[in-house]
Design a protein around this nucleic acid. Structure first.
Length: 824
RNA sequence: GCCGGGGUGGCGGAACAGGUAGACGCAGUGGACUCAAAAUCCACCGGUAUUUGGUACUGUGCGGGUUCGAGUCCCGCCCCCGGCACCA
């Protein structure tokens, strides 16, 4: 019978499901292991990236189960999101229906892959039983002051018609989801106070040795901690004190102007009082009205306007002009900066353009400022700085910060680039934010016991792509829970990243209906192995860490980091580019599974490249993987009788004499050793597959002559089937069955290495002369250095090589090589 | 510009800790089987030279260095990929 993968895969998938093979519950008698892959958005169908993600996760889950762990391996759907609304408009199908159809289809696809999930735990975030807890967490954060509503300059995606969090603006100003250019707006929105956790989010990265270094670096950059000083500048004519933040307080004597952001709160007062009122007004108007996209912000030329007012430099009492400049961001620091043209390139350009003086207050250690063509930003020695002259930059930073503090015009401060997480969205298909606006009481939170606030499903989707919620009068109009008077519901919904910030907790007890999760969370959490794409380095992975820390501070969980080990898998590439519809280089997983089977697809994906690197798709490679499975199948079928008649007890190395037999025995245990290390330590599944192929090639070419041979081949076959089963589970179940076993291979223990069997009898010793390989000698393993040297010098080939030469040095690496250093 | 990661056959990729470069697979070439083809099986498969059993030289982005010995370590470049980027 040929390898009928379709029948085999259907058979075992059905068995796994009907027998509940992968159901797990807490079990204190075993070490636990929580293996999690990032759950998908139900976009309609799995793509190759999913297939890769879930093949890796399933391999790990199955492997660890065989290693004796009690493994939680769940799956669910991140089911709120904009594509459902777009589909609704495009096809006239309700987002609810579209999403649920996709979930059913994708669940089927995941089952067809043979993934070992505990499907009883499937969660879908768009279900009220899930999103009510999003609302509950929102209320908890609101109580703690960690959720707040504020007006702020924010990012707006015109195509998605919603605001975006900072993290969700990527590639220099584009929407993470649709790629449109994002514009800046000033709106009142809901935020989660991630910045309150900035320092801990940064510090505890050091407690995550199981995370890839590059992800930690990306998060460090994203959090962007910088130490500096907050300085006060008096503006006597306005009777105001301005604050600026600087990381270069050592350049304070070089301040020649102060620049405010056009959005700075003082600007309105300035406009009212300025002698250059018209110029200032028109400048501010022009800059704030230019609906500049973040992408273009960086290329915009520096511009500014003099206000007519002067600030006093507290370091030396000098008056410096007060400007308003377009390059000062309101979102960072204080929205005002001290201008030091000599030592900041941006200030330099600005000063040159407007003829502002340049005062050098740091000079290079060796030499002088000669060329005035750009700012000197490096470290050096202070000059023109009064009593601080001659200090090195690091000394000056410390001394001048202390001086500023002692004299009351400065305070050391830490600033972060990280902003608070903007969580409200002007979208329909999301979690309703559980607050109302009451004319009398203002913002009022919905009481906990009234949750969930159900997202109305009986709605007409507006054609132009906006949310129907603000116009849904019967839903919007409600009563204030506080005073009973009329109130309007919040019509914004929560960012879908809120759903994914705690779903890993919900998997521990998805049936819990009076809490977001129950005590099982203490058994399973934290996640031992998390697997997903690197694109979430500064999105989901930061939000989840933040959520976990907040929950820990609320006493709901006892750990402060959700994911102990992280594996970020590479992209799936075809013809040198990421698979995408627009490029037309997409390969559909369904087609591959239909044509070759899930086992082939999984094997190819795991074999083609290491998990953290990009994977180049190759149709030929898929055929190669399929060929291997077919050969394995054929070999087993052809030899099944002899294998089943053979003595199933493994024969000890001691009782094997002939080299062929000893070699085969050694190969079996070498394979176990190497494959175990590949999976557990190296996380290189491609090389593990190569080892299996080597073992199989050796079995296949082995010519059995007696009972012992067949017994050895049986051990080889069983080892191969057991070890290969996390990679290609269906065919291995079938082969395990053919080998006469009753239980499932999925429930087998991972084989133990017999150290006796690993010992080599003979070793090929390399003989180098002056570092070049000249001869190879087969010698018994374990010779002493002297014995090795003696045997090498006895060898006639070696003797011929060194005839007439003077061996000045002999380097010996036992059981490996000898290098003869010779002279004429 | 700053910060990461990476450059190894025709291709995907191996090479634990400085010790046989190219495991495994793909493609290719030659052969077997076949009326023929596919499938399958066997052999070869970095380059150059050659007297072709074989041998020598050369070869891991480029140029230096350390070492008995370097894909691996050090110094200086080049190129590709990713992240951040008016963050004061």
């Amino acid at each position: 019978m040929p390898y009928d993968f379709a029948a085999i895969e259907a058979k075992w998938q059905e068995k796994w499901e009907s027998e509940g093979t992968f159901y797990v519950n807490p079990d204190e008698s075993k070490p636990k292991f929580y293996c999690l892959e990032m759950f998908p958005y139900p976009s309609g169908a799995l793509h190759m990236g999913h297939l890769r993600n879930y093949s890796i996760g399933d391999l790990m889950a199955r492997f660890l189960t065989m290693r004796g762990y009690n493994v939680l391996h769940p799956m669910g759907f991140d089911a709120f999101g904009l594509p459902a609304e777009n589909a609704a408009i495009k096809y006239g199908v309700h987002p609810y229906e579209w999403t649920w159809n996709n979930i059913e289809k994708m669940t089927e696809q995941l089952k067809n892959m043979g993934c070992s999930y505990d499907w009883r735990r499937r969660i879908t975030t768009c279900h009220p039983s899930y999103y009510r807890w999003n609302q509950w967490f929102f209320l908890k954060l609101y109580e703690k002051g960690l959720a707040y509503r504020a007006e702020s300059p924010i990012n707006w995606c015109p195509s998605c018609r919603t605001v975006l969090a900072n993290e969700q603006v990527i590639e220099g100003g584009h929407c993470w989801r649709c790629g449109s250019e994002v514009t800046k707006r000033k709106l009142e929105q809901w935020f989660f106070a991630t910045t309150k956790y900035a320092q801990e989010l940064l510090d505890s990265l050091d407690d995550l040795p199981g995370w890839p270094e590059n992800v930690k670096i990306m998060q460090r950059n994203w959090i962007g901690r910088s130490e500096g000083v907050r300085l006060k500048f008096e503006v006597p004519e306005l009777e105001e004190t301005l604050e600026t933040f600087t990381t270069r307080v050592d350049t304070i004597f070089g301040v020649t102007y102060i620049a405010l952001s056009p959005e700075h709160p003082l600007v309105s007062k300035i406009m009212a009082l300025s002698p250059h009122e018209d110029a200032v007004g028109s400048f501010v108007q022009r800059v704030t009205n230019t609906n500049v996209t973040s992408a273009r912000l960086q290329e915009t030329e520096k511009e500014g306007v003099f206000t007519g007012f002067y600030a006093i430099n507290p370091a030396n009492g000098k008056s410096v002009p007060l400007w308003i400049a377009n390059y000062v961001l309101m979102e960072y620091g204080t929205g005002a900066v001290m201008g030091v043209p000599a030592h900041d390139q941006r200030d330099f350009e600005f000063a040159q353009k407007y003829g502002i003086p340049i005062i050098w207050v740091v000079r290079p250690v060796d030499g002088d400022i000669e060329d005035m063509t750009r700012a000197f930003e490096e470290e050096g020695l202070s000059c023109n700085s009064g009593q601080f002259d001659g200090l090195t930059t690091s000394e000056a930073l410390e001394a001048m910060a202390n001086w500023a503090e002692e004299n009351g015009f400065g305070k050391k401060e830490v600033q972060y680039r990280l902003r608070d997480w903007l969580v409200s969205r002007q979208r329909y298909w999301g979690t309703p934010i559980p607050v109302v606006y009451c004319d009398r009481c203002g913002i009022v939170a919905i009481p906990e016991e009234d949750l969930p606030v159900i997202l109305p499903t009986d709605v007409e989707m507006p054609k132009e792509g906006s949310s129907p919620l603000p116009h849904l009068e019967e839903w919007i109009n409600t009563t204030c829970p506080k005073c009973g008077g009329p109130a309007r519901r919040e019509s914004d919904t929560l960012d879908t990243f809120v759903c994914s910030s705690w779903y890993f907790l919900r998997f521990c007890s998805p049936w819990c209906d009076d809490k977001p999760f129950d005590d099982e969370v203490h058994y399973w959490m934290p996640v031992d192995q998390y697997i997903g794409g690197i694109e979430h380095a500064c999105l989901h992975l930061i939000y989840s860490r933040f959520f976990t820390k907040v929950l820990a501070d609320m006493g709901l969980v006892s750990f402060r980091e959700p994911f102990i080990n992280l594996l970020t898998q590479g992209m799936v590439i075809k013809d040198g580019a990421k698979m995408s519809k627009s490029r037309g280089n997409v390969v559909d997983p369904d087609d591959i599974i239909k044509r070759y089977g899930a086992d082939t697809a999984r094997l190819f994906i795991l074999f083609a490249s290491p998990p953290d690197k990009d994977l180049e798709w190759s149709d030929r490679g898929v055929e190669g993987a399929h060929r291997f499975l077919s050969r394995l199948w054929r070999y087993m079928e052809e030899n099944i009788e002899s294998l089943n008649n053979a003595d199933p007890t493994p024969i000890a190395m001691d009782s094997l004499v002939e080299p062929d037999k000893r070699n085969l025995k050694r190969r079996i245990h070498k394979t176990i050793e190497l494959v175990t290390r590949d999976i557990e330590v190296e996380r290189q599944f491609n090389t593990a597959v190569a080892r299996f192929m080597e073992l199989f090639n050796e079995m296949n070419s082995y010519e059995p002559k007696d009972e012992t041979d067949w017994s050895l081949l049986r051990e080889a076959a069983e080892t191969l089937v057991v070890c290969l089963s996390p990679f290609v589970p269906h065919i291995c179940e079938e082969l395990w069955d053919m080998l006469g076993h009753k239980g499932m291979v999925a429930k087998q223990s991972w084989p133990e290495v017999d150290p006796e069997a690993l010992k080599e009898d003979e070793i090929t010793i390399v003989v180098q002369i002056n570092g070049k390989v000249r001869e190879r000698l087969v010698l018994p393993a374990g010779l002493s250095e002297d014995e090795m040297v003696r045997r090498v010098f006895e060898d006639p080939k070696v003797q011929r090589r060194i005839e007439g030469l003077d061996v000045v040095k002999t380097i010996v690496v036992p059981d490996k090589l000898i290098n003869l250093v010779v002279k004429r």
